[in-house]
């Protein structure tokens, strides 16, 4: 059986759904963040698959940018989580309901 573009798209879609479920279901802010990363990676897989099957390198360039932005985002997000933890001593999202402390 040959592996077609559809196989890659399906795998990426499943990965995206798993990440979405993690974002909605979990209570730990860090796990939610990891699930967000997972959704970004699912998009990356789609980009690379389309790049390969269309014979265009541009998709891979976009993945390069996505990885860069995701890394910067993780740094800022984790800094925010640490700052939040200093204030409230928790990373549970259901304990963080107020915008102003």
């Amino acid at each position: 059986m040959d592996i077609t573009l559809n196989h890659y798209l399906a795998v990426a879609g499943v990965l995206f759904v798993i990440g979405l479920m993690g974002v909605i279901m979990r209570r730990n802010l860090l796990i939610i963040y990891m699930s967000l990363e997972m959704m970004l990676q699912a998009a990356n897989l789609t980009f690379v698959a389309f790049s390969r099957f269309n014979g265009l390198i541009d998709g891979q360039i976009f993945v390069f940018f996505v990885i860069t932005v995701a890394a910067a985002e993780v740094a800022v997000g984790l800094a925010l989580i640490v700052a939040l933890y200093r204030l409230r001593q928790t990373t549970r999202v259901d304990a963080l309901t107020a915008l102003k402390f």
């Binding site: 040959d2 077609t4 573009l5 196989h7």
Partner: peptide
Amino acid sequence: GTMLTSALPNAP
């Protein structure tokens, strides 16, 4: 599905 084999022989 989009096949790879016929359109693109080996590498992109």
